[in-house]
């Protein structure tokens, strides 16, 4: 399964419209990405809660269309 980088960014932006997002296609196969996302929505939340917010934003694509996504969440002061 695979997903286009632009599509991935579009999906995430729906839940994080004001976040700054940096997505890298790690293997060039539309299947292994790294995502760095900076948002004030993460402030004060545990890492688990932050990552769960990102997984929820992916509308169930994680593990299906999207095989591997490494996530780095950053608070926005």
């Amino acid at each position: 399964m695979a997903i286009k980088k632009e599509k991935l960014e579009e999906i995430i932006k729906k839940s994080f419209p004001k976040a700054s997002i940096n997505i890298v296609d790690l293997a060039g196969d539309d299947d292994h990405f790294s995502l760095e996302i900076k948002s004030s929505k993460f402030n004060g939340l545990s890492r688990i809660k932050q990552h769960k917010m990102v997984y929820d934003a992916l509308e169930g694509k994680m593990g299906g269309e999207l095989h591997a996504l490494s996530i780095k969440t950053i608070n926005e002061e």
Binding site: R47, H51, K72
Partner: peptide
């Protein structure tokens, strides 16, 4: 649950 690979690494 502590987390997955990303969180454990961080």
């Amino acid at each position: 649950l502590i987390g997955g690979c990303d969180i454990i690494k961080e």
